[in-house]
């Protein structure tokens, strides 16, 4: 076991120490990653109260499930996965019918003809299917690599790339002015 001060130990070492019974190791992990996980939760839910509950549930879940960390991904990736899953579980439970079909966005715009469909960026993002939205949040907003996002979302890297591409196209269409100009 490392004798370094907590702040100088890496994430894996801290998680190992927590599993071994160190009473302070997980607190250091929380201190280190809380702001990033808060941002992920808030951007995923867009609701401060919901994000608060999700990120709290996620950290307590991580505390209890630390033994399940296998070490094949970075601890931050593992934490991202827990936070994202906590948020998505809550969103699905609270709004089980809110998900839009994959191509409903363009259909809706066509049906409305000249109705002004311009949305702000966050509203447009919210209207994407969950898979595309999460890919864009993680890759474009949080700067995760495609490989990291794939690990968080537990899908193939090609799937993340495809979701990013399709999500950007859909957003560009939503954000286009009624005249058709971007």
């Amino acid at each position: 076991m490392s004798t370094l001060p907590l702040r100088e130990r890496d994430d894996r070492d801290l998680l190992r120490a927590h599993v071994a019974g160190d009473p302070d190791a997980f607190g250091e992990l929380f201190r280190r990653h809380r702001d990033r996980m808060w941002a992920v939760a808030l951007r995923t839910t867009r609701n401060r109260e919901l994000a608060s509950d999700c990120v709290q549930d996620a950290f307590i879940s991580a505390f209890r499930r630390a033994e399940s960390y296998r070490g094949d991904a970075a601890v931050t990736t593992w934490l991202h996965r827990i936070v994202v899953n906590a948020c998505l579980d809550r969103l699905r439970r609270d709004k089980p019918t809110s998900e839009l079909p994959e191509y409903e966005l363009s259909d809706k715009r066509d049906a409305e003809g000249s109705v002004d469909t311009r949305l702000d960026v966050r509203e447009a993002l919210d209207r994407l299917p969950e898979g595309q939205r999460m890919a864009l949040i993680l890759v474009d907003m949080h700067g995760l690599s495609v490989a990291e996002a794939a690990a968080v979302l537990e899908v193939a890297e090609g799937t993340v790339k495809s979701r990013c591409s399709r999500g950007r196209d859909a957003m560009a269409e939503l954000l286009r002015e009624p005249s058709g100009q971007p």
């Binding site: 809380r34 960026v121 864009l136 196209d169 957003m171």
Partner: peptide
Amino acid sequence: PTGIRDLLASLPDPGPMP
């Protein structure tokens, strides 16, 4: 080519956890 990536990256950070 859509520029959406840059647009999303430019959104303000939510800031530190309250």
